[in-house]
């Protein structure tokens, strides 16, 4: 067998001390001699240590008082102000001193004044070999007396019964939530639903959206919706205006924008964070959670990061009064992928 050794030139090829190998071992010199501490030799040092411990305990008492000062003496008119900060600091310092005083005091006491002779205790095996044999015998007898080995009918029926019995405990959790159905495929957007400002709900005119701006949008009526947050989690949209020549809509999507105004779902197709960072010169959208980057000029194709699918686009147009409205719902489910998405 080709075996390299440790590489040191003066080490013979030698079997290591694997415990069982018959190799000469060093003689254990035993515990080093005990070295007495200052406090052991000098009564004055012991007295000094005693005083130090007492002072530490006194510091703890002062700390506790400090806590009460912080708690009762500070009036907080307005929590944004520095009063609360001061109170929090005093409570913290008070508690810290109270604790440090006791803790350091006790440890100092133990280190300097309590006996510091190391004690040797021998280890015992977890159990004795003989006891293990006895236990095996007892267990064997118990199993034998039940007859479970001799009566397979009982054993098998019992196993089946015991396997089945926990299932109700799982099934009873069925009503934790409704089945998904197709709610993930629909949002509040629909033909003619106006785009409104988040969070105020003010409708937006096409002329309000100037080149370079990014507007955070919710559907009209969202603030009054019954399941507001659930609807908002699907329906939030980012509205941006570019020079129309910067956009390159694919076939069938040419009229999804309006004069360079385009609306894209704000929910990341990765795991659902709001993709809210719009760089108006590069036309990139960045998700702050996992850095997926979408290129607005390529219909929000992913150009960096862990997301795969482009952000869904909301087809928009303007109504008779000049307000931006959706042409329809999103044409695909928004947000993170899920199994049934297809």
């Amino acid at each position: 067998m080709a075996r390299r050794n440790d590489g040191s030139p003066n080490t013979p090829d030698r079997v290591g001390t694997d415990g069982h190998a018959e190799v000469e071992r060093f003689h254990d010199p035993g515990l080093p001699p005990h070295r007495p501490r200052l406090a052991d030799k000098d009564p004055r040092a012991a007295k000094r240590a005693e005083k130090q411990v007492a002072i530490l305990f006194l510091i703890s008492i002062v700390g506790t008082i400090l806590f009460f000062v912080g708690y009762f003496a500070i009036e907080i008119d307005e929590p944004g102000s520095s009063d609360l900060r001061l109170q929090n600091l005093l409570l913290g310092l008070g508690t810290a001193f109270a604790m440090f005083g006791i803790g350091i005091g006790i440890v100092h006491w133990a280190k300097t004044l309590m006996p510091d002779h190391e004690v040797v205790e021998s280890r015992k095996p977890v159990t004795k070999e003989s006891e293990r044999a006895e236990a095996e015998q007892i267990l064997g007898d118990i199993i034998e007396e039940t007859g479970i080995k001799r009566r397979p009918l009982i054993r098998n029926t019992m196993l089946v019964a015991m396997i089945l019995a926990p299932f109700p405990a799982i099934a009873i959790f069925r009503d934790l939530g409704p089945l998904p159905g197709d709610v993930l495929r629909h949002t509040m957007w629909d033909e003619g639903v106006r785009l409104t400002l988040d969070p105020t709900g003010t409708p937006i005119r096409a002329s309000d959206v100037t080149i370079g701006s990014a507007v955070h949008v919710i559907p009209e009526g969202l603030n009054e919706a019954e399941h507001k947050l659930e609807e908002k989690a699907k329906a939030v949209v980012l509205l941006m205006r570019l020079n129309p020549e910067d956009l390159s809509p694919s076939e069938g999507r040419e009229d999804w924008g309006y004069e360079g105004i385009v609306a894209y779902s704000k929910i990341c197709t990765h795991v659902g964070c709001p993709v809210a960072l719009y760089e108006q010169q590069t036309h990139h959208l960045l998700c702050p959670c996992h850095q997926s980057t979408f290129d607005l000029t390529q219909e929000c194709k992913v150009i960096f990061g862990p997301a795969v699918r482009p952000l869904p686009q909301l087809p928009i147009t303007v109504d008779a009064e000049g307000y931006l409205v959706a042409q329809s719902d999103f044409t695909e489910p928004v947000g993170p992928s899920f199994w049934e998405r297809g």
Partner: peptide, 13 residues
Amino acid sequence: TGPQNMPVFNDAT
């Protein structure tokens, strides 16, 4: 004004 890559927040929005 939307300096550099910051979007513009005009008075309408």
